[in-house]
Design a protein around this nucleic acid. Structure first.
Lengths: 350, 350
DNA sequence: ATGAAAGCGCTAACAA
DNA sequence: TTGTTAGCGCTTTCAT
């Protein structure tokens, strides 16, 4: 009777069955050049007969590379990061790597724990979108990593990938202008966030190029939620001159969706009375009424690009730069065209 | 000069520094009972001095447990599975395990590849939501696993976790009835899917309990998309008697959202002219107009429960049963109350 | 209470 | 072209 093995087949089992040595098996499987036809055949036969699958733990241990990549994001249930995760996972799979995914739930303590788990799992590299704008201890993280998000600005010596906010804002300003909204108001994120500064900087730069005085722009601060957008819009509506069309550029879609709600609550219509432009491209924007015109961040592309960058980093050719993924305009129904033939709307706007 | 080590600290480094043997370090870290105060202290000091972190690959190799769990789902960017992933990741982290996440993108070939990756990574267990309703080769998968989704019916010998569809449907039928819609129409998924049969079975059972003839119910088949829902609703609208209130129960939120669009396109109003009830609880339902009343599946709970079940499975006490997670009703604005004081609506309904 | 030593499955350097 | 051997870092007997 054969050895009663409930265990998985190892390379030794294969070797025995094929009547060769471990190394020969390893060589065949690794695609070494100098192998006899016969040996290769016998090995392959033995592999399928035993159902052998290499043990990545052992491989990793010996080679020093675990074949694992780590992804740490604030919230996997947020559609943007879910997209990032999908892009990253896809690219990782293409490179033959598996992805360890951690959602820190906006909790720095959890984040730290996840980073520790990554180190202990000996991942070959990590992709991190820190919860806070700065994450100390990252400099001695001890392995290659790439950053996502605005936090990257705090780590100039690290590669990072993110949306091209400046280009996205320009896209937004242009479509606004093309619809006759030369001086939109803005609903921005909280002052404490780096992302807000980045958005604002892009607006200012665009204004300078267009010879508009940035100081003449109305801005409201809020937090990045539906409620926040609703409140900010209400404030905007109070201050706005009656009968004049109002255009609002929101720094995120959730706030834009809240803004639409506020417009409806005020007895006004979107886009007839107020135009709203979002930023993010979350799926829900497609189902609001009106459907939200917005600037879409390409989360999936960000995810895949991050993995590519990480490979550069791992290969020891660190670019130490930021890669900007362009945003895309999604035109739906929340923008009125003040320049169209419709004289009523033109009259309302002027 | 000390050894110039660019490598990570190993248990030997710690042992040397603490002036003890490997085994003592392992014992201290493993929490063995018989350890001298002094040894423990020295070890802990050495650990923090060297920044030692256990190598999970080595641990896994030795102990036979990698500390890894696998999750394979059709689409991580779908909010339901993103929620599942979050719940699973959370629970896994609590148990000190890391989660390998794979999105098969509805592609059986990718799915198979991911399953192989799991085996090679020597995960301690896997959670799988198969792309197809049946996945062959799963019986000799070679490691503990738990299933998610309707496919579980094809594997009676496997533990599985899923939403309590029957209870959810009952919830929906009850709220419909409470609003005066005794005989709603249905938009169901494609005939090829097991999920459709399960939904239909629940409806029939409910009808029998309520003494309604199931044959009297209008049903439309479609696929689980916005477009599909839109088309099915158009068909329903054509057949409906004018002036009579129509209530429709959709088997998924995407279709329900499409149905709302179709109602608007037909120049009708929701909920005044037609009531729509969804099923899933996707975030977008909160932003449609009207906001969608729906039955919410608890993806997060499903994810965490799956991990718990998996642990049972791994511990060798297989329950081999299906766990049903209850659904929850989210009342928003897509249901008209035909029984309310409003006589206009009552008149419209009768 | 502690140390020595074996070995998990694999790769790579060295022999043959 | 192939086989032998020495570890990778850790846990776990078995001695002491």
């Amino acid at each position: 009777m054969k050895k009663e093995t409930r265990h998985r087949a190892t390379i030794i089992d294969v070797a025995k069955r094929a009547g060769v040595s471990k190394s020969t098996v390893a060589r065949v499987l690794g695609g070494s050049p100098n192998i006899s036809e016969e040996a290769a055949e016998r090995v392959h036969a033995a592999v399928s007969a035993t159902g052998y699958e290499p043990n990545h733990l052992a491989v990793g241990m010996r080679s020093g590379r675990s074949g694992l990549l780590g992804l740490v994001i604030p919230d996997i249930a947020n559609p943007f990061w879910a997209d990032v995760a999908r892009g990253a996972q896809d690219q990782a799979a293409k490179e033959g790597m598996s992805l360890l995914v951690f959602s820190s739930d906006w909790d720095s303590a959890k984040e730290a724990a996840h980073l520790r788990a990554l180190r202990q799992a000996r991942v070959d590299g990590a992709i991190i979108n820190p919860v806070a704008d700065n994450l100390d201890g990252l400099d001695r993280f001890g392995m290659p990593f790439v950053l996502i998000g605005s936090s990257a600005e705090s780590f100039p010596d690290t590669s990072s990938v993110g949306s091209d906010i400046a280009q996205g804002v320009r896209l937004g300003m242009d479509v606004l202008l093309a619809h006759g909204h030369a001086q939109p108001a803005f609903i921005l994120g909280p002052k404490s966030k780096l992302a807000r500064a980045r958005f604002l900087r892009a607006i200012n730069q665009h204004c300078i190029e267009r010879d508009i005085d940035p100081a003449s722009l109305h801005t409201e601060d809020s937090d990045y939620t539906v409620e926040g957008g609703k409140e900010a819009m209400s404030r905007l509506l109070e201050r706005a001159s009656k009968g004049r069309h109002l255009a609002v550029f929101c720094a995120n879609d959730l706030m834009a969706l809240g803004a639409i709600l506020a417009v409806r609550d005020a007895g006004l219509r979107c886009p007839e009375d107020v135009s709203i432009l979002g930023f993010d491209g979350i799926p829900s924007g497609a189902f609001s009424w009106p459907a939200l015109t917005t600037i879409e961040k390409d989360g999936r592309k960000i995810g895949s690009t991050t993995v590519t960058c990480l490979f550069d980093e791992m290969a020891g050719r660190p670019e130490h730069g930021r890669v900007y993924i362009p945003c895309r305009l999604i035109e739906r129904g929340s923008l009125a065209n003040l320049l169209a033939g419709n004289t009523d709307r033109l009259a309302a706007g002027r």
